[in-house]
Design a protein around this nucleic acid. Sequence first.
DNA 1: CAAGTAGTTTAGAATAATTATAAAGTAATT
DNA 2: AATTACTTTATAATTATTCTAAACTACTTG
Lengths: 135, 135
Amino acid sequence: MNNLNIYKEKLRESGLRPTRQRLKICEALFSPKETFHFTINDLSKIIEEKLDEKISLATVYNTVHAFKKNGYLKEIVIATDKSYFDTNTGTHSHFFDIKNKELIDINQVDLKDIPNPPTGKKIKNIDVIINVESE
Amino acid sequence: MNNLNIYKEKLRESGLRPTRQRLKICEALFSPKETFHFTINDLSKIIEEKLDEKISLATVYNTVHAFKKNGYLKEIVIATDKSYFDTNTGTHSHFFDIKNKELIDINQVDLKDIPNPPTGKKIKNIDVIINVESE
DNA sequence: CAAGTAGTTTAGAATAATTATAAAGTAATT
DNA sequence: AATTACTTTATAATTATTCTAAACTACTTG
């Protein structure tokens, strides 16, 4: 129930001190029951509008990147004009609606055969994005 | 042998007049025997250094986008800081070396099962990117 | 618990890729 | 050859992101 300690733990794990601003970011990211996708701007707005705290963009960027580096967030590369993040850090794949720029989580999609990587390189992870559009 | 007409055809197909600048862009893109990956900046440098023509960035952007729209180029979304394009327009997948930001074409990777898209949406295409790193 | 110090926040500047603009130039049509 | 419509270009504008340095705050230690 007391998420506060969980947030502090995540921050500490990420090498960050628990400050008022960072705890608000945690609340926005980790208190919802459902995972979700967001851009830095989305997150910034959520915090301002729902949590009534105006945090400078630099802080939001820094914190999100620290969480990403520590595995508390994932980045999903689907557009070149903006970065998208996912609070669902489990292995999974995505539908991406090209028009609405909407992401939908799906279970991990397995490959029939995994190709051999070039010599000297090893596979780190595999991204599968199924692009869809309204018919 | 006379690629010129092929270039003109591609330009016409893309709704563009064959100008000196655009023909140089075609030469850079379509004369190499092997397909390749590039950013706008790469392409711009190739044209300047190898083809000895300085073309304004706006023209390069416009032409590349027209070719992309017409299927003569593909965009590969692997990084959020830059757009990558591929002169290989066939269906295929990629290895992506995270460190060097190097792309390597591979045959299309098939999925074990293709998930059902959300109702009202249909699958347009599937991107598979296998991220690798030097070991 | 009062410093001290090490990490933090912030506004605003800097950077970088991309897109928009509008004047001067060029291809195509007549 | 003249007209028209499309192009190129330099430059400005835009947008996301990163940097910076001064003001601020958490944490440690005496």
